[in-house]
Simulated scan of single mutants.
Amino acid sequence: MDDKTVLSRIHGLVDEEHQLRGQLSRGEISSSEEHARLQELEVALDQCWDLLRRRRAAREVGNNPDAEQAHSAGEVEGYLQ
């Protein structure tokens, strides 16, 4: 996945977040449905941002950014623990 693709995915996930909030406010989904999907979106966003940062870091030090792969949700979510 190149930087442009990762950024496009990030924008798509953010758009979905906004749509969910609108659906909740219109009563189309329950707050528990919104909450569950928002949690999934947050993890996916964390993975995308992590990959983008690692691609940029690889490029800065002269490494191939295409060698970077997305880390698992567990790994990305466990960074601060």
Rank of each mutant, 00 (worst) to 15 (best):
D3V: 12
D3P: 01
K4Y: 14
K4D: 15
L7F: 12
L13Q: 04
E17N: 05
H18L: 14
H18K: 11
H18T: 13
R21C: 08
Q23H: 12
Q23A: 13
S25G: 04
G27P: 00
G27C: 02
I29N: 00
I29F: 06
I29M: 05
S30F: 04
S30C: 03
S30Y: 02
S31I: 12
S32I: 09
S32P: 01
E34T: 03
H35G: 02
R37L: 07
L38P: 01
L41P: 02
V43D: 09
V43K: 05
A44P: 02
Q47D: 05
C48D: 02
L52N: 01
R54W: 04
R55W: 05
R55A: 05
A57Q: 10
A57K: 11
R59L: 08
V61P: 05
G62H: 03
G62Y: 06
N64T: 07
N64I: 04
P65N: 08
A67P: 04
A67H: 13
Q69C: 10
A70T: 10
H71E: 15
S72M: 08
S72Q: 10
A73W: 06
A73I: 04
E75Q: 12
E75Y: 14
G78S: 14
Y79D: 09
Q81K: 14
Q81A: 15
Q81H: 11
